[in-house]
């Protein structure tokens, strides 16, 4: 049996007459980057919502490390090892870079219930937060307010916060969004090395990044996975070309 870290089985979700997810079964194996691509409105966000816990599927189930997490809340899934990044940076803008990273470290330790000692004075939390910032290249900006960061730096911090969780699997919603060519290239290199730590479910519009990184690609169209396969298989799949890649492939 192939070991899977994260998997969905027949996930279905409707909004009124619209089937946003129709019987979706995908899996994420150790060491891989599995990219989800699809045109706007294909149901990528809905799928991520169900995997991460903000949306409940009408049918089907989600498993993390072989454990059924379908009924768990978002925060429970995060504690179980799901590290996600948001398409639009979700960071505490008034707080510093280090505080944002510490938040992740705190959540991972599962104990925010301390009211007296200073969060930033906690050595283990701080070490974890600083290590993550170091890795994404934000170590020099620790004391900056998040609001004063550039867009690219916020994207980096977004990844760093997920790193502090030391998750079993990453779910990344368009981590390249709004990055320039240079930033996109750097992040691509970083994610390439990250997959050895924990596999990545990557939703991304940047096709260069997807083709450079993905071990497997699933194509989502109108709420259905129409194809899953290697980069070459997907590139040459006629249905995919028709539905999505069009002339650009």
């Amino acid at each position: 049996m192939t070991e899977t870290i994260l998997a969905t089985y027949g996930i279905t979700k409707s909004f009124g007459a619209l089937k946003a997810s129709n019987d979706i079964s995908i899996d994420l194996r150790p060491g891989e980057i599995h990219a989800i691509i699809g045109p706007n409105g294909a149901g990528k966000s809905t799928l991520i919502g169900q995997i991460c816990g903000s949306l409940a599927p009408d049918a089907g189930r989600v498993e993390l490390m072989g454990q059924d997490v379908t009924t768990l809340s978002t925060d429970q899934r995060a504690r179980a090892g799901l590290g996600r990044t948001f398409q639009i940076s979700a960071l505490a803008m008034e707080d510093t870079v280090l505080e944002n990273a510490t938040l992740g470290a705190m959540g991972a330790s599962g104990r925010p219930w301390r009211f007296w000692s200073a969060a930033l004075g906690d050595r283990s939390l701080r070490a974890r937060a600083e290590a993550a910032l170091e890795r994404v290249g934000l170590a020099d900006h620790k004391t900056k307010r998040c609001a004063d960061l550039s867009h690219g730096q916020r994207r980096q911090l977004e990844v760093a916060v997920a790193l502090t969780l030391e998750p079993k699997a990453f779910v990344m919603d368009e981590p390249m969004a709004g990055l320039g060519a240079e930033g996109s290239k750097n992040l691509t290199g970083f994610l390439d090395s990250l997959r050895q730590e924990a596999p990545i479910l990557l939703v991304e519009h940047d096709m260069d990044a997807v083709f450079a990184l993905a071990d497997r690609i699933s194509v989502l169209v109108y709420g259905e996975v129409i194809a899953t396969g290697s980069v070459d298989q997907i590139r040459s799949d006629p249905r995919v070309r028709e539905a999505y890649l069009g002339e650009s492939a």
């Binding site: 991460c52 816990g53 903000s54 809340s73 978002t74 925060d75 429970q76 995060a78 504690r79 590290g83 996600r84 948001f86 979700a90 960071l91 505490a92 938040l103 992740g104 705190m106 959540g107 991972a108 599962g110 925010p112 916060v161 997920a162 502090t164 969780l165």
Partner: peptide, 8 residues
């Protein structure tokens, strides 16, 4: 959303 995503 961020707080939830880091497990709290």
């Amino acid at each position: 959303a961020r707080v939830e995503a880091v497990g709290m």
